[in-house]
Design a protein around this nucleic acid. Sequence first.
DNA 1: GAGTGGTCTAGACCACGCG
DNA 2: GCGTGGTCTAGACCACTCA
Lengths: 260, 260
Amino acid sequence: MSSTPSSAADGAPAAGASLTPAFSPLYQQIKGLILHSLQHGEWKPGEAIPSETELAARFRVSQGTVRKAIDELAAENLVMRRQGKGTFVATHAEQQVQYRFLKLQPDNGDVRGEAPAERTVVECRRVRASADVARALALRTGDAVMQARRVLSFAGVPTILEDIWLPGQAFKGLTAGQMAGYQGPTYAMFELDFGVRMVRAEEKLRAVLPDPAQAQWLAVDTSTPLLSVERLAYTYNDAPMELRRGLYRTDTHHYHNELS
Amino acid sequence: MSSTPSSAADGAPAAGASLTPAFSPLYQQIKGLILHSLQHGEWKPGEAIPSETELAARFRVSQGTVRKAIDELAAENLVMRRQGKGTFVATHAEQQVQYRFLKLQPDNGDVRGEAPAERTVVECRRVRASADVARALALRTGDAVMQARRVLSFAGVPTILEDIWLPGQAFKGLTAGQMAGYQGPTYAMFELDFGVRMVRAEEKLRAVLPDPAQAQWLAVDTSTPLLSVERLAYTYNDAPMELRRGLYRTDTHHYHNELS
DNA sequence: GAGTGGTCTAGACCACGCG
DNA sequence: GCGTGGTCTAGACCACTCA
């Protein structure tokens, strides 16, 4: 990667082997380099990354090109800009929005204030991955995974029952205490204690009836319809790192979504 | 708005009356002007807007400033860029994604192919707004609204039951034939026949049990949990223009959502 | 006042679509 | 070959933060 625009495609495949020229703008390549540093922990969550000028010097491109790269990273919530201060590695802790991935809201607007949910961890143990869990997490059936089950209550009312599966390798030693004790988002604990940062997620929603055990945890009867939310959360690289199956009570809360 | 940077805040409040200086970047002001033209139909959905160079000349700013304004409009899906061709007013018709706001997907991936839903319009009539409908649509109780009810089926299986409310004034003369007959998204028909373009929407999801009538329309029994989706769709200006209450069967489909 | 991100400009060149 | 959006640069100045 030199400083002349004409060599912007330096990273392209070698001599004529490719049908699609795979032209890649310089700023995309810079973005890739910054992303690489993020993945490999050159800067930790919450820390500032080098200034645009500094990165421009390091990569031998103009500040405007670095800016466009960082613009995209900021749009993807991987990085947070603060005018006058710098650009910071995004983190699930100390973020203005506490539960970024939780779309359940109380029916009576009341912002997202609402006491930040009491957690009861029902269990947390090391198990072997079933076929479907393994497939979701890109593991092999029988591989070690950590499994946790917990109940979240709002104002004393049990509202969410969740089962969580995590790859055993990355989350070796996870305890019920960690799942319960940490103040703030569980994903913030994952960053601090395991160095795993969840970057994006996909959810599949369905309406279901609970089985008797589930109904008991949520203090409803088995004829109460519940919102089933299956979430697959990814870290950098689109690597799946968490499978979560949740049951939400939607009598006092609703799942809120914005479309555009 | 002159061409010197120092007058970038031309649109700010008059002499010292404001506590918050309300500095507004030039590109935001340009964005506002383009938005105004979009709202007032200077360019119709699907048409090209003037080139960046042309707009830069019209507004007496640099092409880069226009570009940044259009960048934001494109990010909000109000406008679509096509390299080499131009920038086009976004439309719900002829878009690569047919049903942009419909997040229901068949369980067996199968892309979004799946035959584009047979529509059965059950009713479509002019009624007086109830209190809650009026509040949602920013009308007064008793104002005229159009109400439609329909069933969407996939592969012959009734899957969605929807009630739709629209402001009577803007949608005067809407018929069941229009709701049923139009090929493609209903929102495309709204653009063509009523000049109303839906720009964004909010949805509230819940798990519910159907009443006997609803169950019959969806060919399920009253103990089958269904996904209740209440959508409020907005046109330009954040003006609410449609209330939609849907019941989704989630035995063969699921509601898919991306978080980031 | 020094440093950071944010805005604005002007000009050169590239990739794409189409006649 | 022309016009469009897309990339890249370089430099000036503005707004914000903090010491």
